[in-house]
Amino acid sequence: MGMPTREAPLYAGKPLSSTEVAVPVEVRIPTVMRAATDGVATVPSEGNTVGEVLTDLLARFPGLDGSLLDADGSLHKFVNVYVNDDDVRYLDKLDTKVSAGDTLSILPAVAGG
């Protein structure tokens, strides 16, 4: 599903090294993407950064391919990703660090107000 070509930009110069053990995190999947997770709302994943977690998530649920990342490996413009409710676009984007037990939430951008 196009995974190999996405690895380079995703890891952004920070490959998963042997000293960095991927940590487990929970990922909340929005209704619109649950067809790819058999209807499950919260799924396990792992990594040290948001980018690594999303790559791992795509490996576990190939049906999500195309919904999270653009061809250039950046976050889809209509997708917001939060680490413990903090939007990663205003942190370090896909390089934002995650810790064991963090919750990553994926939400589609919709109109408010």
């Binding site: 929005p30 209704t31 589609p108 951008a109 919709v110």
Partner: peptide, 19 residues
């Protein structure tokens, strides 16, 4: 922001997204 995108059941695909 509220988690609006989580609650909008009628969202058919990401292409319905809005900024």
């Amino acid at each position: 922001e509220p988690p609006a995108g989580e609650l909008v059941q009628g969202l058919r695909s990401l292409q319905d997204g809005f900024i």
